[in-house]
Amino acid sequence: MKILYKIAIAFIVAALPGTVLAGGWPVKKGNYLVSVTASYFRASQLWDKSGKLGSYDQGGYFESRSLSLYGEYGISRRLTGVVSLPYIINEFKQQDMPSVTSQGLGDMEFGVRYYLTNINFKYYFAIQGMAIAPLYSSTGLGFSSGGAEVRAIGSGSGKIGSKNYYINAEVGGRQYFQNAGPFQVRYTGAFGLNFDKHNQVAVGVSGNYSTSINKTLDQNLVLNKDFSYTQGSFSYAYIVNPKLSFFAGVNQFLLGRSTGKGTTFSLSVITKF
């Protein structure tokens, strides 16, 4: 008589969650996810309106340094509040002119992400709505215009052999509320692989297709409204524990039109509590 019935308890417990995640995954109700990112970008080459690459004249360049605070808060099982606040220092130098520096708080973005559904608890899908509010008056920091964005997000994780992986894909439309817009289609995709409990590498691609009736091409990249670019990224993460991770990343512009070609280096810390 085989009546005893064993539950694979150990298996269940081992399968319980988690690491620090963002993307399409919700945040537990009442919990926070916070990240701080420092980044440095420099472009000394320019793509013109037809996508032809050239150099800034006589040692000109565009440089941007920023410190960004990003936060998520679990409002309910399905709803996550999202906010980001950057502090930006932009520096632009043209020919033999002295460099011009603008600094201050940039565009604050805030909104909510709604967890739509999942596929076998492996792939999560969400939709996110954000408002954009400029916290500056200087044109050297952004479009000085309010805006709104709607974004669809899909994220997943699983195993390749014995290694954990994650994927993330996002696409969104953003409209700035001024005469010349612009309207932007922004997209990003990433694939990360955990080599062990602590080390993760990720590669990604992202881009922005921005359209406006204002077709002006300015060497001060912040002023351009009609442009596009695609960039590739590589990042390394050190996962201290499921609630704390450090990231180091590099983004390289690969293709573009009416914008600068440059490289971004960034360092981040992400924590969940």
Binding site: A15, W25, S76
Partner: peptide
């Protein structure tokens, strides 16, 4: 009179999702 380990994995994920333990 048994179920495979994959069902326990599913149970764990389902429970986690329903309880909002993300």
């Amino acid at each position: 009179h048994e179920v495979p380990p994959s069902l326990f994995t599913y149970l764990s994920s389902w429970m986690m999702d329903e309880f909002g333990i993300f």
